[in-house]
Amino acid sequence: MLSVDDLHLAAGPRELVHGVSFTLTPGEAIGLVGESGSGKTLTCRAILGVPPPGVTVTGGTIALAGEDVSRYTRRQWDRVRGTRVAAVFQDPASYLNPSLTVGRQLDEVLRVKNGLSRRDARARAVELFASMGLHRPEHVHGQYPYELSGGMLQRVLIAIAVSGDPDLLVADEATTALDVTVQAEVLDLIAGLRERRRLSLLLVSHDLAVVAQLCDRVVVLRDGRVVESGPTRQVLDDPADPYTRALVADHREYGLDRLVTR
């Protein structure tokens, strides 16, 4: 599905990611973890074809369904994005136009990407909103971004992301800014979408517990290199690399897990 092989990223002369490799099979979920500066967000943005300004792929390949996309042009990306790979990020509000209703923004995507008529697009949009667990989807369709809570906006963004029926969903800190109960709901939603749509998932998070909720495998990054990867339970319960051990120990030092055994 997704195969990242020896990926190097650099900003000018400074190399930031030094040969990251991992593969994601159809329907699988991988968690990309590491502290800030580990290169997890850079890697994820390169996979989406939107590296930060000044950062370029200097080596290696990113294969989406067998095709190397790492040197794709903008136009080639337009074809792939939404239909093969889609993404949600930490701050949903900044990805929506504040002066258009959220429904209209999803309609637009459906009409351009899926070639639906105005009426069909609207019907499909309401359907999608409903399947995202948004109550009163018709009503939400006519609301502006400022009228919705952070959790609702993230659901709208997920609806837009999956509207093109992608094979891979990238979630970059998508639940970090949400309240715990809302985070739990959104994680449940993503878990449900994976099952129903056979979505592959690339989850980027600094919170190991979030990764533990959804992912089959974990890739641990440090300073632009993979230090460890493997099945989630193996990496989190019995980390082999000292850095991963430190991450897990840090995570366990405080938190509910100290008190409650579940």
Binding site: G133, V180, T181, Q183, A184, E185, L187, D188, A191, D207, L208, A209, V210, A212, Q213, L214, R233, L236, V248, H251, R252, G255, L256, D257, V260, R262
Partner: peptide
């Protein structure tokens, strides 16, 4: 109770709880 049930655990998936109580 709901708040506590919503906290993700590093030890594995949380029982689906939040969905039923919203």
């Amino acid at each position: 109770q709901r708040l506590i049930a919503s906290v993700p655990s590093i030890d594995g998936p949380r029982p689906i709880y939040a969905r039923s109580t919203t």
